[in-house]
Design a protein around this nucleic acid. Structure first.
Ligand code: MN
Ligand code: MN
Ligand code: ZN
Ligand code: ZN
Lengths: 150, 150
DNA sequence: GCCTTATTTGTAATCATTACAAATTGGATT
DNA sequence: AATCCAATTTGTAATGATTACAAATAAGGC
């Protein structure tokens, strides 16, 4: 756990959430790992430290965190919800090669204005899909190697 | 059916899809109704004209249409995929009061550039959440009435 | 009409999420 | 430190969208 335990406790208490062992560990993992994990992968990771941890606890805890604005649920995957420890609005990039979901910094003029086409904006959700920087490099290397070796 | 049957046939043939009765009806509905319906609501609507229509056909047909770029699946709802008869990239507005998903016209500088933070963009997905123009009007009326009647 | 193949249909399996009740925990009170 | 109480956690079962699959049906060429 990189994030200080006292910091986690304070963040939870600031939202009126009792800082239990499970909750602290879940929030800590999300702040340390900016991978936008699914419930399944969260469980796989956290069960190593908390062998009794149930998926039900993950579901209810993340629902609570989301309601309090501590985390943001992402609906990018068709099949599973992903959770983001960075709750402030930002955009994402889904790499169709490596599957990673990466934070991107986008300033959206429409969202700044607070309305679009007469509709009042409360939330902005955006993501791009394509090939990430690292996978592009990989392609380049692969091509070079292929060319080099014949 | 507003959209001409011959037009539908041509659109399907242009993508190399055999224009069956079911496929023509499904595409026609999506072009006539820009409501971004779910499988369930598509079935409810279309079963009136095609009583034997199965949900399996809807799933497989829409998967085929999406693969050919005839329709766009939207992952805005957490629980159900919605389908858009307008396949060219555009943004949406989800009204948290009436639940409608409305097309909005947004020009995104990042998407025009084709890359963001070094990542190569292939698709752009964006939606806003808030209160739509019509529901805002409704709120106003309600407030006025309340003020007026004491 | 008959044959072949694509499409459609019904049914069953899968899997994430939700519902729910029992077990456990942690803190307050005695 | 034992007891009590409410909140939290846990395990299990239900739900519901999606997928898998095989049988029924339809369409097109002969
Ligand atoms: Mn993020
Ligand atoms: Mn649309
Ligand atoms: Zn990648
Ligand atoms: Zn509305």
């Amino acid at each position: 756990m990189i994030t200080n335990k006292a910091v986690l406790k304070d963040r939870l208490l600031a939202k009126g959430i009792k800082p239990t062992y499970q909750r602290t560990a879940i929030l800590g993992f999300l702040l340390d790992n900016r991978t936008h994990p699914t419930i399944k992968s969260l469980h796989n990771s956290l069960v190593k430290t908390i062998p009794t941890l149930s998926k039900t606890t993950l579901y209810s805890t993340l629902e609570l965190f989301a309601a309090k604005g501590l985390v943001a649920p992402l609906t990018i995957d068709r099949s599973e919800v992903r959770y983001d420890g960075l709750a402030s609005s930002h955009h994402h990039f889904l790499c169709e090669r490596c599957g990673r979901i990466i934070d991107v910094d986008v300033s959206c003029a429409n969202s700044r204005r607070g309305e679009i086409g007469g509709h009042r904006i409360k939330e902005v959700h955006g993501y791009f899909k394509g090939i990430c920087k690292d996978c592009l490099k990989q392609t380049y290397k692969t091509n070079k190697r292929r060319i080099f070796h014949g």
